[in-house]
Design a binder for these strands. Structure first.
Ligand SMILES: [Mn+2]
Ligand SMILES: [Mn+2]
Ligand SMILES: [Zn+2]
Ligand SMILES: [Zn+2]
Lengths: 139, 139
DNA sequence: ATCCTTATTGATAATGTATTTCATTATCAT
DNA sequence: ATGATAATGAAATACATTATCAATAAGGAT
């Protein structure tokens, strides 16, 4: 709702044009609470914009990803899914029942990473952390 | 070396037959310190067993994965790579320079997960943690 | 050692996903 | 309203994975 407009504004600021297909995809992605595969986005978006092409879905997801609005999410059963991006340092918790994805923050691995880093000689630049389980509704 | 035989024994115990192609793949996977894609395994294994088929690589990796001997590794630039499995609760640290993968243990997220769990109503069943950086040799 | 059952293999075909190409269409600054 | 050009979608292409199937080979039984 509110995010949709903000996304479209940013898209425009960055030199993109606002079009029907893009509007449909942005509406979807900005308001989805689960990670979606390109094909899934395609299917959902065609409800709003029937002549949507799958190629446009790929291109738009790529564009939104460059703008930092969506990001790729890896899951055990699908590694090319997209979800609205995190705000700052957040990680994902995903429900294996319904697919609901929720960002959380507050993890503090810095001390631990420091320790591992010292012991191993590795220079750690980033980390992935993801929690898998069942949401309130699914258990 | 030692692991190779152990893997083959387990494979046999579970009703599998020991064959040339499997021996070549097991030797590779049991001794590799980096995650390998099926095609990469294929190329390397053909050195030992020239008439190896790519399909056999897929099938053998799947089998070894069912036996808990290898596991799939996700990386920013490739999500279908395989590596010898962890021993118990371990996570991976991967060098973005050379691909070297090292397991570490000692992370303790239980208190944090407990907190997130309470706040969100999620029942957390497992977690992914992965560190990305540069190994001693690569920086 | 030989035989026999059947697991395993690899060539091939089929599938599904992602990318490239290109003529047509739509956006938006003027 | 017009025109430059960004964006689109159909079609073609590339690529990774899976399914099919006849030939082969492993290993238990004899
Ligand atoms: Mn992945
Ligand atoms: Mn852990
Ligand atoms: Zn759920
Ligand atoms: Zn390295």
């Amino acid at each position: 709702m509110a995010d949709t407009e903000r996304w479209l504004e940013l898209l425009e600021e960055k030199g993109g044009r606002i079009t029907g297909p893009r509007r449909a995809i942005v509406e979807l992605m900005a308001n989805s609470d689960r990670a979606l595969s390109p094909v899934h986005v395609f299917d959902l978006a065609r409800a709003k914009y029937p002549k949507m092409g799958l190629v446009t879905v790929y291109r738009t997801l790529e564009f939104l990803s460059e703008l930092g609005l969506v990001e790729r999410v890896h899951q055990p059963d699908g590694c090319h899914m997209y979800l609205r991006a995190a705000n700052g340092h957040e990680h994902l918790m995903i429900c294996s029942g319904c697919g609901k994805a929720v960002y959380f923050s507050g993890d503090d691995l810095s001390a631990f990473i420091e320790k591992i880093s010292k012991e191993s000689g590795f220079l750690i630049q980033s980390h992935w952390l993801q929690l898998h389980g069942l949401c309130k509704e699914c258990h």
